[in-house]
Every structure is written in C-alpha cells, then in structure tokens.
C-alpha cells in the first residue's frame, strides 16, 4: 500500500520526470523557413591578424560564405529595371578587435566607376534599408554606409537618415581593397569592431545587427555610366553577427545539472528502498 504524503511527493517527482521527457521532445523545434539562400553573415573568429588587405588571401579559403540575391533598385526614383550584379557572396571574420568583410560578385568588365557598399543600422531604432528614409508610423534611426569605388581605390565612411542626407563622416574609420579578376570583383572592407564614433555601427560579439548591400556596374554605355547614384543593385536587410567567444561557464551549469539530478535520484531510490513511499 502507498502512504499519504510520501506518495504524493514521489508521485510529483515521477510526474516531473515525465514532463521533462515530454518537453525535451517538443522544445527544440526548428524554425519554419521557406526562404531560399542565406539569411545572415557570420563573422568567424580568427586568431591573430585578419586578411584585411588581401581579398585573394588563402586565409579566406577556409571561411564559409553566405549568398544573397540582389534586385534592381526600384524603390524610389531614379529607378533601374536591369542591373549587372545579380547576387553576392559574403564572408566575414573578426579577431575580437577588428573585423573584415569580403564581398564577391560577378561583373564582366572592370570599370573606373564600379562600386560596392555595405549598409548597417546604427543605434536602437530600426532604419529603413533605403538610406534610413523616413517611415510614417515608426521613428526610424540612421544608417552607416561603407562605400568603396574602384577609381578612388579606397572606402568612405558615410551616414544617412533619409533621402538626400547622405554625407561623408568627419571621422573616417574604414578601409577597403578591391581586386577584379576574370569577371569577378572581390572587395574586402575592414574596421575595428567598435569605434568612438557614434555615427558608426558598433559590433558587439554575439549581437545580431542588420546589414544590406549595394553594387554599381560603372561600365560606360553610349557615353553614359550604366549604374550610378540610385541606379544600382540592392538588397534589403539581412542579419550579421560577430561569432562570440566560447562560453565555458555553460559546462559548469551542465555539470551542476548532472550532479543535482543524480543526487535527486539517490534520495528517491533510498526512500523507496527504506519503504517510506511504497
């Protein structure tokens, strides 16, 4: 025969056992995703110096890439219906201090006006992907744009909050290097993860940020540059994150869990053997 309080206690513990088993079967459902392609860029952690100066460095070979489709900029005038760059492969690395982001895309000709840009939201308010343009029901934030152009051979650190507000920042914090070979541009942008400039995106390890891309084919067709200004290939927002350092405290918690569960079992079995519950 079972007796009063002892039963109840043991029963509830056995019940907990069942619920734990149950919840483990349902807790880790993968999120539903029908979207093709990548949704984020991962800045892998590197020891030592980064391949910031060389887009062809063999160090990049071991870094997995993400790929994003691009669209002709049809959101605001001047629009463009057909663009050269259809998609971009992106790789990223960081070493806890600096980060480097490599973009790789097909463009059949090398032209002086070829250009590439990365865009980031700055601050806590979400910014519209089109230069942080004004939203009607939501207070938006600014964007930080890293713009590289082939003819200047360098990158410009820029800010915008709305159309016609794009400006070069007083303090320049980024570097870029581009190499064109066999119809492929490889451009590597680099910067410190964090800067003193509040116009810049600040990258905290482990924190998700938003990134968007833009590319211009500077080929000259009938005396005119094919893509310039608002006429470009664009993406909307995707995610980016600097891979966090390994957190070994997790294993401490796992060991604590194992110890507590074993101690719990010992108590139960001891009670049952003494006949306190049964």
């Amino acid at each position: 025969m079972l007796n009063g309080l002892g039963n109840l206690r043991t029963l509830s513990l056995v019940g907990l056992f069942g619920v734990l088993g149950f919840s483990s079967a349902f807790a880790n459902e993968p999120p539903a995703s029908e979207e093709p392609g990548s949704v984020s860029v991962r800045l892998y952690q590197f020891e030592g110096s980064l391949p910031s100066e060389d887009p062809n460095s063999s160090q990049w070979d071991s870094v997995p890439s993400s790929e994003f489709n691009l669209a002709p900029q049809v959101h605001w005038p001047p629009r463009i219906q057909e663009v050269t760059v259809k998609s971009v492969k992106v790789k990223g690395v960081h070493n806890g201090q600096e980060m480097a982001i490599l973009v790789e895309y097909a463009d059949p000709t090398e032209d002086a006006a070829d250009a590439a840009a990365l865009e980031f939201m700055v601050g806590d308010n979400p910014a519209h992907f089109a230069h942080g343009q004004e939203m009607l029901q939501v207070e938006g934030g600014p964007v930080n744009i890293w713009y590289w152009k082939n003819e200047s051979g360098k990158a410009v650190d820029m800010s915008a909050k709305g159309f016609k507000t794009l400006e070069t920042q007083p303090h320049q914090d980024i570097q870029a290097k581009g190499v064109w070979e066999n119809g492929i541009w490889k451009v590597v942008f680099s910067r410190l993860l964090k800067t003193e400039d509040d116009q810049d995106v600040q990258v905290e390890e482990g924190e998700w940020k938003n990134v968007a891309f833009a590319f211009w084919d500077g080929a000259v067709v009938d005396g005119l540059v094919k893509e310039k200004g608002g006429q470009k290939a664009v993406s909307t927002w995707w995610y980016i994150r600097a891979e966090p350092s390994a957190d070994n405290s997790i294993f401490g918690w796992v060991i604590l869990g194992l110890v507590l569960a074993t101690a719990f079992e010992l108590v139960i079995v001891r009670k049952l053997r003494k006949g306190q519950a049964v």
């Binding site: 056992f17 734990l20 088993g21 919840s23 483990s24 807790a27 880790n28 999120p31 949704v39 984020s40 991962r42 482990g206 998700w208 995610y239 994150r241 966090p244 957190d247 997790i250 918690w253 796992v254 060991i255 604590l256 869990g257 194992l258 507590l260 569960a261 074993t262 079992e265 079995v269």
Partner: peptide, 25 residues
C-alpha cells in the same frame, strides 16, 4: 533509467544555454 535521467537533465541544460546561431525570429 537511472543513468539516462541525469544525462537528460544535462542535455536539457546545455541546449537551453548554448548560444543560438539562428538570427532573431
């Protein structure tokens, strides 16, 4: 059963604490 239970608790603890590689839902 006695071995599996602590392992289940350990695995649950790990899977709850390990940082996710998935972007925010």
């Amino acid at each position: 059963v006695l071995v599996m239970f602590p392992l289940l608790v350990g695995w649950q603890t790990y899977s709850r604490l390990v940082p996710s590689d998935l972007p925010p839902a």
